[in-house]
Amino acid sequence: MASAPENEKNASAPEKKTLTLKSMINNEEFVVDEHVALQSVTIKNMVDSDCAGDVIPVPTISGEILALVIEYCKNHANPSASEDDLKKADAGIVAKDIYTLIDLVLAANFLDIKGLLEVTSQKIADSIKDLPHQDVREIFGVENDYTPEEEAAVRAEHDWAFEGFP
């Protein structure tokens, strides 16, 4: 815990507590106000259980993505931001190509930031909706791993509709 002189210092000049987040992919570091970073339930749990050192390493998330995540958290930690402002800012953050969005959705899920997971998922869902599967495959760069027989089996499968019925 903090020693006495430090307490005095805090009392005379209340400093905002900060955390340093470090991307383990490219070692980029970000100094962030604690209340901003704590929107991530994962980070909050680390801090609450005293597992967080001075620098919190963030595995599997690049600096580029971490910057977007922090931008989101900053916007949402700003008490004077209106709902409209936030909507616009969110839309800006997720207006990215499909390869950035996959990193972003993974980061939101890993860091457990509910709002960011929601807006990112919605953005991705919007680009899937109403498209035939061939187009989805092309846009998302997904390889077709079905053999023709397997695909036919899925097509022939409508027993699901009667599951649970006598």
Partner: peptide, 11 residues
């Protein structure tokens, strides 16, 4: 989408 498109994208 859930019935007609997504299941056919990949396993």
């Amino acid at each position: 989408s859930l019935l007609l498109d997504v299941p056919f994208v990949c396993k």
